[in-house]
Lab assay of single mutants.
Amino acid sequence: GPGLTDLFKTEKAAVKKMAKAIMADPSKADDVYQKWADKGYTLTQLSDFLKSKTRGKYDRVYNGYMTYR
């Protein structure tokens, strides 16, 4: 089956995709945050998933999740 690194890459891609969806349409934020909360994502995990070469690119999404939880 898929190894943990593959799983991480898949999760990371999914999280980034959802983060971009929030940035494009902030009204989606609560739905996405709820999904992440259901998956039990911690802020540390989210921070790892949303690492970007562009500093602060996903800060709004991260901060939103922090206040959501």
Rank of each mutant, 00 (worst) to 15 (best):
V32S: 03
R60P: 08
L7M: 12
A29R: 05
D59T: 08
K16I: 15
L46P: 01
G3Q: 13
A37F: 14
A19L: 02
K28D: 03
A37R: 09
A29Y: 02
K51D: 15
Y41G: 00
N63V: 14
L50P: 00
T67L: 14
T67G: 07
Y62S: 03
Q34P: 03
S47I: 06
A21Y: 07
K17H: 06
R55V: 15
L43H: 04
K39W: 10
L43D: 06
K12C: 08
S52Q: 05
S47D: 06
K16H: 06
W36P: 00
K17P: 01
R55E: 15
D48G: 13
M18N: 07
T5I: 13
D48I: 15
A14E: 14
K28S: 07
R55I: 15
T44E: 10
T42H: 03
V61M: 02
A14C: 15
T5E: 13
K20T: 06
K16W: 03
D30F: 10
L43A: 07
M23W: 03
R55F: 11
L4C: 15
K16N: 04
Y41V: 07
A29S: 09
A24T: 08
K51R: 10
T54C: 12
A29H: 02
L43K: 06
T67F: 12
A21V: 09
K17Y: 07
K53N: 15
D6T: 08
Q45D: 08
T54Y: 10
K35Q: 15
E11G: 04
A29C: 05
Y65P: 00
K20S: 08
G3D: 12
K57I: 07
D25T: 03
S47L: 08
K51E: 11
A29V: 03
Y33W: 02
K57L: 07
I22Q: 01
T44P: 10
M18E: 15
L7S: 15
I22W: 01
Y65R: 00
G1F: 11
A21C: 12
L7T: 13
A13S: 09
F8P: 06
K51P: 04
R60G: 13
K57F: 09
D59Y: 10
F49N: 02
T67Q: 15
Y65I: 00
E11H: 05
T67D: 12
I22E: 00
T42R: 02
K16R: 14
D59Q: 13
K20W: 09
A21T: 12
I22C: 05
